[in-house]
Amino acid sequence: MKYIPGLIAILLMSVFAACEDETKTCDQTLISDLGINFKRDTLDGFIIKDTIWPKVTMYAIGKDTIVNRQPRSSVFVALNPLADSSMFYLRLDSAAVADTLIFRYARKPNFVSAGCGFATFYTLDTVICTFNTIDYLRINNKEVNSTNDTHVSLYYIR
């Protein structure tokens, strides 16, 4: 008998959840942003750890700055929905030499949810970059959609 109030509370919550106006809220924090994280390779691929770079600067060529001299272990960037490729400038430290990254992809409009509406989803094809500070990179997930995944990892050998 002591569980009855709890059961009623769960039922009421479920009923309210079922009655929720789904057009009012967008439950996605990031929609179709490309996730990039930084990794340090200290023993030829045997010891790989996430790393925080102290002064990361990143922006799309010809556009506003996304991150400006901030300590970061990962960056999320929006790809160009009007073109099949996007070019980004990336500098990890004020002392480091900047790199350029070019992402090539296919685009498709997608209905995310009643609250979020439509968004462009991307399928990564190729990533081209300069290797000034970056040593190598890996594409973890080609589908850039409403999940907050890390799609590309950039590796630095130290």
């Binding site: 929006a78 409009p109 209905f111 509406g117 439509f118 968004a119």
Partner: peptide, 20 residues
């Protein structure tokens, strides 16, 4: 059906319209 939709990207300054 969706007679019209808009996808706005503040960063890229794009406003894509379409229909389903």
């Amino acid at each position: 059906e969706v007679p019209n939709y808009r996808i706005i990207s503040d960063y890229w300054g794009s406003d894509i319209t379409g229909s389903y």
